[in-house]
Nucleic acid binder design. Structure first.
Lengths: 133, 133
DNA sequence: CTTGACCCTCACATCAATGTCAGGGTTCTA
DNA sequence: TAGAACCCTGACATTGATGTGAGGGTCAAG
């Protein structure tokens, strides 16, 4: 099948499929006219790639697990892939660190906001005091 | 004072100071030789800009609050600035959304990992079964 | 007069995956 | 045979703040 059908069946853009190829995640054949040719295996691979990207892995992560057969069956039916597992575990840790950093940021911003609000409240009280005098 | 001293006193890079200027957050004078000239006010402003950036606001956020006098005193002693307050509140919401998105991602990745691990465990049991036969 | 520490502008690189052009070829259908 | 719908490559844009380098002035101390 050609790239448009592949993309449609995998729920990704044609651009993305070409990008995956450029990143050496897939290697389609070529027809005589230069068009890329994909088989059913490609459907599985591209779906897997998309799913892994969507789960927070990077193209680089996925590339590390290629040529290990880890992308050529539906992920749910191919549980044995230590490399993907390890990378995913690392990625989970990185994700946790990013979340922690964001929550730290949130804490600082919230405290700043709170301090500002209470300072404004105090200022209004002062004004009220002045009025009541 | 010149840009090097300003940057040192504010704990930011010279590059960042020039970037703030390019973004119209500061507007230093120029000496006869073309060197930027900063006064004490600039120290306060640059420190405030850096602190706000560090708190998760963007240059665009900060720009919206300029010309309101919100950057010309230490933030802790200038609590009355509704615009900064509103922007910061918005930013807090955005931060919460980003955190939620990351946590969602984390959940998906963790589930995938868990499923993979338990599938591997099942596979090992199967192997054990085969051995025990 | 030279060295070194400053300063200037301009501009590209970073990170990641994808969108979106431009400029052109192919294939199928009416 | 024309037009629609597809395909190709190549390249720039996006986001945000900063790093870095080239190529070149300015100034003070030695």
């Amino acid at each position: 099948m050609r790239i448009g059908e592949l993309a449609r069946r995998c729920g990704v853009s044609v651009r993305s499929v070409r990008y995956y190829e450029q990143q050496h995640l897939i290697a389609p054949g070529r027809a005589a006219n230069g068009y890329r040719e994909y088989d059913e295996l490609a459907v599985v691979r591209v779906r897997n790639i998309h799913e892994l990207l969507d789960s927070g892995l990077t193209v680089e992560d996925i590339r590390l697990s290629i040529d290990k057969g880890c992308l050529d069956e539906p992920l749910s039916t191919l549980p044995r892939c230590p490399d993907v597992l390890r990378v995913a575990t690392d990625r989970l840790g990185a994700l946790d660190r990013r979340i922690a950093a964001l929550q730290d940021l949130r804490g600082r911003l919230a405290r700043q906001l709170l301090a500002t609000r209470s300072a404004m409240a105090r200022a209004e009280e002062t004004v009220a005091d002045e009025w009541s005098r």
